[in-house]
Design a protein around this nucleic acid. Structure first.
Lengths: 271, 271
DNA sequence: TTGCTCCTCACGTCACGTGAGGTGGC
DNA sequence: TTGCTCCTCACGTCACGTGAGGTGGC
């Protein structure tokens, strides 16, 4: 029998950890002095400790290790648990590699421009949303004002107050000089009847959207698009749907020049 | 200005987290009602929140993010921090991949033998150690008894009690039928004078040793060697030095048949 | 008025690590 | 006797999550 300090050296496990495993019932010393409280271990117990370390290394929690060791699971059951862990670790490797590419993308941005970009891109999800919308081809984005007017009249006529969420969908896949296919949208709570060019439809949920925030007038929003499109490219994503330009400032009228304007650009993406 | 619930939906960050960031001073609402305590945010603050999320995603702690945002670090400083993070994440990917190979090795073991092996292999490090030893070529391992006798006499003559650590080093690279190059070792505390075949020397530290525990007589120790050698192979390691067979049971005399014998096999390894 | 939103405590998480303050063993 | 080892609390870690119990706002 050996004392906890020697057992600790033999196993490369700290004394604190051994005491913790004792408390948790994972590895009880074969004997505890009833007067001094000293813990005494057998060399044999190194085998159990090794099994604990191996399971912990695989990422099992202390509680599951305790169950696993005491219930004496069958080879088939352990096999199943290992398969599960295998896929979890694989996922973790994938996640870390994606994180790595995000770091690399930041680094290359700083190296190229010698300044930290003001546009941070993050991934979000979006819930399904019901909207009233007007879709049309207009010469350029600033010409969408008329569409907003049309939609606003409809909303007033239906006597629904717009919720604070409104945005434009840009349906073109590629950059255009002229003739942009734009859909202006207002979120609505209840079903409404379409009328004229105003449609009522539901947008599906989006699992992953790359998003960035633009502060300031629309004239300079091009920089935000540059940043997010580059991010999507460098991080190995591709665009899977229409871009949403969300007007976060209150009382959007489609032609703001207010310097306090805040706009969020959202691209549905996938790997 | 919007309330915390809406800000939470807009950002896909929980209300609890937003309150936590407020407490930590990371992201203060622009206004807090002095009677109700309600927090009010500006859309603009989404930009700061995005930066927080981006930095958190890269693995920075809340405290470093707070410093980073408030001190307005230069592009060069951020570049440096990102390089550091990059290498940390790379290391993590490597670690997880190694963990994955350990899981895979367990799985293949179970699939082949349809039972969970009693031999768990773990990695440890070893400190430098000073030993008195006798090295010789003997027909087979059980013939090392004479070497232990020689070493024991020397220890008695020098009037040093053996510490509890004694082991054999197996210097052969490959399996042998006959003529094993074996060195039997006793740990000693202070320098001693060599005499006859007894050498006194220091073994260097080992950064990584693959270790497993064998319980029971030496006759069945072959199974432990099979298990550890297979583990080393499957996990992509190679052996970098002499194998240590450590006799953990007290009063080793080199020829035990005691069923309570505990032996640890240690192979110095590297990737 | 009702249900929804928001608030502030206080405590939990996970696997230990870090002292403080004290005692046993050679 | 001295220094080393061991002991038991009690609290800290990290980034929030989980209630409990209560109140404001439409």
């Amino acid at each position: 029998m050996i004392r906890i300090g020697d057992f600790s050296k033999l196993s490369c496990v700290t004394v604190k950890t051994l005491r913790f495993y004792d408390e948790e019932g994972l590895l009880k010393p074969v004997q505890v002095d009833q007067f001094t409280g000293y813990r005494y271990y057998e060399f044999e117990q190194l085998a159990r400790l090794h099994r604990i370390l191996a399971l912990r290394d695989l990422g099992f929690s202390i509680e599951s290790i305790a169950q696993l060791l005491d219930q004496g699971l069958s080879a088939a059951q352990i096999h199943g648990m290992l398969l599960l862990r295998q896929s979890e670790i694989r996922q973790k490797v994938v996640d870390e590699e994606e994180r790595l590419s995000r770091v690399t993308s930041w680094l290359s941005q700083i190296e190229q421009e010698d300044i930290v970009s003001e546009y941070d891109v993050v991934l979000k999800s979006a819930e399904p949303i019901r909207v009233a919308s007007v879709r049309a081809v207009v010469p350029t984005p600033p010409d969408q004002g008329a569409l907003w007017g049309e939609l606003g009249s409809y909303m007033a006529e239906q006597k629904v107050r717009p919720t604070s969420v409104c945005f434009s969908l840009y349906h073109d896949d590629e950059f255009k000089e002229h003739d942009w296919d734009i859909e202006v949208c207002e979120q609505i709570q209840a079903e409404l009847t379409p009328k004229g060019r105003v449609q009522v439809r539901a947008l599906p949920a989006e699992a992953k959207m790359a998003c960035t925030i633009h502060k300031g007038p629309f004239e300079t929003i091009g920089k935000a698009y540059d940043a997010i499109l580059k991010w999507i490219d460098v991080n190995g994503y591709h665009i899977t749907g229409a871009c949403r330009e969300v007007y976060l400032s209150p009382s959007h009228d489609g032609s703001q020049v207010d310097p306090d304007t805040v706009t969020e650009i959202q691209y549905p993406v996938a790997k």
